[in-house]
Nucleic acid binder design. Structure first.
Length: 164
DNA sequence: GACGTGATTGTTCTT
DNA sequence: AAGAACAATCACGTC
């Protein structure tokens, strides 16, 4: 809060006039290295998801209906974004300050507004978390596809040797 | 009793 | 390049 003269905190865009040093983290935020295999696999996954959506053409107003899960319960779902992590934190605080408001809609609105007021430094923290999660998600997706291609019909849910 | 709805932004995929 | 879709959460409405 030392410098408040400059209120233009735009994580995106912005002219080169700003110090490039600050732009460094910004770039890394969305810099996720994805393997070609992962991308190709994504197509397959998407195709399956699409098929499911067709069955439930309910995304008119609400897109979050059945989604995926029936096809493969092990399929890695999209990890929450930075905003969601912030929302999780914000929700707790918001409920404490506004115990009357319990609906997520109200919280969502407030959170959205607050999110915009946050500075990049504050956001980058959540971005970092989201980035890591995405990296893990990509890895999980790779293995998921690999296993799927390897032996899809062979579902041995009995012996689940997961080593964390 | 159980499911869907609605609201928020971010990231990825699709065309 | 731009749009569409989905990610989590939780009280409320509907059947």
């Amino acid at each position: 809060m030392a410098k408040k003269t400059n209120d233009s905190q735009e994580p995106v865009s912005s002219s080169s006039t700003n110090a490039p040093e600050e732009a460094s983290p910004r770039r890394m935020v969305l810099r996720v290295r994805r393997s070609e295999a992962t991308k190709r696999l994504s197509s397959l996954i998407r195709a399956e998801e699409k098929e499911k959506r067709v069955v439930s053409v309910k995304r008119s107003k609400t897109k979050q209906k059945k989604k995926s899960a029936k096809i493969d319960a092990k399929m890695p779902k999209k990890p929450p974004t930075a905003f969601f992590y912030f929302l999780e934190d914000f929700r707790k605080e918001f409920q404490e300050q506004n115990p009357e408001v319990k609906t997520m809609r109200e919280v969502g609105k407030a959170c959205g507004e607050k999110w915009k007021t946050l500075t990049y430094e504050d956001k980058v923290k959540y971005y970092d978390i989201a980035m890591e999660k995405r990296a893990e998600f990509d890895k999980a997706m790779s293995e998921y596809i690999k296993k799927k291609e390897s032996g899809e019909g062979d579902e041995t849910e009995d012996d689940e040797d997961y080593y964390i």
